[in-house]
Design a protein around this nucleic acid. Structure first.
Lengths: 343, 343
DNA sequence: TCTTAGCACTCGTCTCAAACGAGTGCTAAA
DNA sequence: TTTAGCACTCGTTTGAGACGAGTGCTAAGA
């Protein structure tokens, strides 16, 4: 694929840079003037025609300049792009991710997407750790008053779930402690898939006088560990889309934004991004989903204990500032992984 | 203010209903045809001219129909409006508010705004209970492993805060229980303002070997009870605005939506809505803030233990379906209050 | 053989005037 | 007091023409 001569590379890079900058089709004279390549507009025109023939560029209509095609962007990203360093200003902002240290993992990720959206001015999305990989760590029952019992369920990595249960029967703190430690002993380290019916029934019947309470608790544990319909996707900066010149058409834009009302479906689209290290870039048609064919997606995974637990990234027009996006996404994923090591 | 004769009332109501429905200036013939009032378009025209003179209507330009002015909407809401009953379908949706029963109050309110936005198709907003009115209820320290301690702080009404603290010194579960019950005993029922320096210092020095741990805990308590910069405003359905014909102008709409980036400032605008019972309606210019002069705001307060703790409502164009908005907002506020009674 | 100046051509956008039509206010008759 | 009739207003739509950015092609020059 590295089959372009140097001059073609320069021209393709110039056109792509310019188009990313201005959102206007780029003409040969513009290139000749702005980027002093030492060749005339006529020569550039010839090269452009050749690049178009090879599928790197296209014209929206005869009398317009050129726009990079998806193939063009792909070449740009793979071959031509030099990643800019993350500025210290950006780094300052990114470091805000760890500001609140150790609150729930989900909040941390929300904060990260928010920061990512602000930095890139695109839509920022994150897939949060799948609970089904989560492990039971600790449960604690606390008597708030006679009949209200606070259940605290701690799950690795970093999810803490609280629920206040109303119990018709009064339990003494000692009883609650006993129940807690029994459940802890039986459930510690278990994954959702390990919660077999046999086990659950055994637990339910273990303390006859607390059957109802334990039932409720088990439901909660199961709910948290098996992650039915819980939010798996976090998005921020949706409105940034309105600032992009290609989304001035309201109907089109509404269509896109309405995708974000069904987080579950969208998560599926964004899943299957299992990736090794570094940022992954999906450009336009490379996205399987037709709604995303005008979008590019730059994602990176973040880790917990060396395991790939989730994905974070940005979604923007194919005319995306790839360099900056990739740098920033990488940096954010890195910060997030570092922070999660502390959980 | 009840100074319009019956015919004028009918015409004003017809124009307002029609304009709310179509978003197009309403002409005399339209009224004559759609609402069989038994009078000709010419008569309606005369009455319209009179209503315009009195400030209830205006024409966007000479050759157009009429649009209700803010004064016209106000009259419509105060005098002409008959509240529609909430349909059983709506009620079904509203009852989803209590689906998850007793998770944290903030989540409940988020869910409520989401439902409200879906039902009305306007922007839905809520001011969540001010923490400074919150009361310390319970604290619990749980040893997760040797050096990680989970702090659970329960605050009335319905806020549960978790934090994992890393402690260089190892505490036994018994020690942690002792610290918990000491703090519970000293802090139970206290408001943020009751946390004087003297008290806090006394607590800090009460158990010398746990000084650092207690310090961290106290910081957390103070943070939660004094509610520095925590989110006080929740909004949903921002994108609904794009479906309104009066907000097809992207620049204008972006300006409005950007208001929602500074929740704190917006909360101020929406505060000062201390109100008795039932929904409050603010129409167009009645809003102090100039950004909101094209908007109407329908709000109701919700209660906890008989105290007005927060506000929930919808924000839409002045051309709002007031009847439905008021009914639904009232119903949601009611459901929310009922649910909070259980907290 | 490669480069480039020159030029005719294309086609989207901008401009402006004319036609259109929804709605009005006024007048005069019922 | 109501209403049919009509001239008038003014925003919107339509279409023709001018404009111009950018192209491809040709032919001359390096």
């Amino acid at each position: 694929m590295n089959n372009l001569n140097d001059r073609k590379k320069c021209i393709l890079r110039a056109i792509t840079d310019d188009y990313i900058d201005t959102a206007e089709p780029v003409g040969s004279t513009t290139i000749a003037k702005k980027h002093k390549l030492g060749i005339s507009s006529a020569t550039i025109r010839n090269e452009m025609a050749s690049l178009e023939e090879d599928g790197y560029l296209y014209q929206p209509h005869t009398s317009a300049g050129r726009i990079p095609s998806d193939k063009g962007y792909r070449y740009y990203v793979d071959v031509l792009l030099e990643l800019p360093r993350v500025t210290s200003e950006d780094n300052k902002k990114i470091s805000q991710i760890s500001d609140y240290k150790k609150d729930a993992i989900e909040k941390t990720i929300r904060r990260s997407t928010k920061i990512l959206a602000e930095l890139t001015e695109y839509i920022s999305i994150a897939v949060i750790p799948e609970h089904r990989n989560a492990v039971f760590r600790h449960i604690q029952l606390v008597s708030l008053d006679l009949r209200n019992i606070l259940v605290i369920l701690v799950v690795d990595p970093g999810v803490i779930e609280n629920r206040v249960l109303f119990s018709p029967r009064v339990f003494s703190p000692i009883e609650l402690d006993e129940i807690s430690s029994y459940l802890n002993q039986r459930l510690r380290g278990k994954k959702g898939e390990a919660l077999t019916k046999t086990l659950l029934n055994e637990l339910r019947n273990s303390v006859p006088e607390a059957r109802d309470l334990i039932s409720c608790i088990i439901d909660l544990v199961q709910e948290v560990l098996t992650d039915n319909d819980d939010e798996v996707l976090v998005a921020d900066g949706l409105l940034n889309l309105l600032d992009q010149p290609e989304f001035q058409d309201l109907d089109k834009t509404k269509l896109v934004l309405s995708m974000f009302e069904d987080h579950a479906a969208l998560a599926k689209v964004l899943f299957g991004l299992t990736q090794t290290s570094g940022a992954k870039v999906r450009i336009g048609e490379e996205n399987k989903s037709p709604e995303l064919k005008e979008f590019s997606l730059v994602t990176a995974t973040y880790y917990h204990n060396g395991n790939n637990v989730g994905t974070i990234g940005v979604l923007g027009p194919t005319r995306m500032a790839y360099g900056r996006a990739i740098s920033v996404v990488n940096e954010v994923a890195l910060s997030l992984s570092e922070l999660l090591e502390l959980f």
